[in-house]
Design a protein around this nucleic acid. Sequence first.
DNA 1: TTATATGCAAACCTTTTGCGGAACA
DNA 2: TGTTCCGCAAAAGGTTTGCATATAA
Lengths: 132, 132
Amino acid sequence: MVKERNTKQKAVILSAVQGTKTHPTAEQVHAMIADEMPNLSLGTVYRNLNRLAEIGKIRRISVTNSPDRFDGDLTPHHHICCTQCGRFCDFFDMEYNENLDRLIEAKSKFSSVRHETVFYGKCEDCKKFEMN
Amino acid sequence: MVKERNTKQKAVILSAVQGTKTHPTAEQVHAMIADEMPNLSLGTVYRNLNRLAEIGKIRRISVTNSPDRFDGDLTPHHHICCTQCGRFCDFFDMEYNENLDRLIEAKSKFSSVRHETVFYGKCEDCKKFEMN
DNA sequence: TTATATGCAAACCTTTTGCGGAACA
DNA sequence: TGTTCCGCAAAAGGTTTGCATATAA
């Protein structure tokens, strides 16, 4: 049986991810904490982010051509990523459709289904730039 | 202006991806072609897969904890990935909802929007295994 | 007290890139 | 014949891991 310990590092990492809406990469989380905990190693950041994602306290999001991002906001919402500059934002104005997960469970032999939708497009700034 | 050349390598790589439903990784594409073209380098496979994805002849799919996969099937469909064993399959029994893309375009300042939905769950085999 | 987590650094895996030579157009 | 592409190998980038030490319980 695995006992999970409450370390200072884990707490700080969790609250860093929960306290931002920037969907930081592991490297960015590490940088955010650098002042508060200068000796924190990047490996520990990765280990904790992975654990926190496994137990569902944060989300881990894979994006094409970009390191993984972490999101402390567990309310169902989608993300949109600029294919040009990589800008990555929340998109809340659309419901997470849980029915899709139930439908998949019904039609496939998978269980505990959830889904991750990432929208890709060209953001305002990159569009402008293309005009010139 | 960029002139795209029709090399033997590119043709073989494209038809390899188009000729399978296994969503191969670059490494797997390379292996699939090894008999036919023993000197083909992995770098060339990557370069061509990227180009083919850029011009929309194939799809490139990013998955958590797995190398990128390539799909020659352009008909809109979703994918489902086992969080345990990484098994990755098509899921056709659900429409690609293009309205979502139009909705995002309307509500955000992004253009040329498309989306990629990956379902995650536990596959039949892994479920069985857990029971024991 | 002892199992789990950390820091550090090395290793790993995937993907990209620089270069000189090959080959499309 | 001029570019674009290839093969090779090295490097880059992101992430994981082994080990000795520190620390939570």
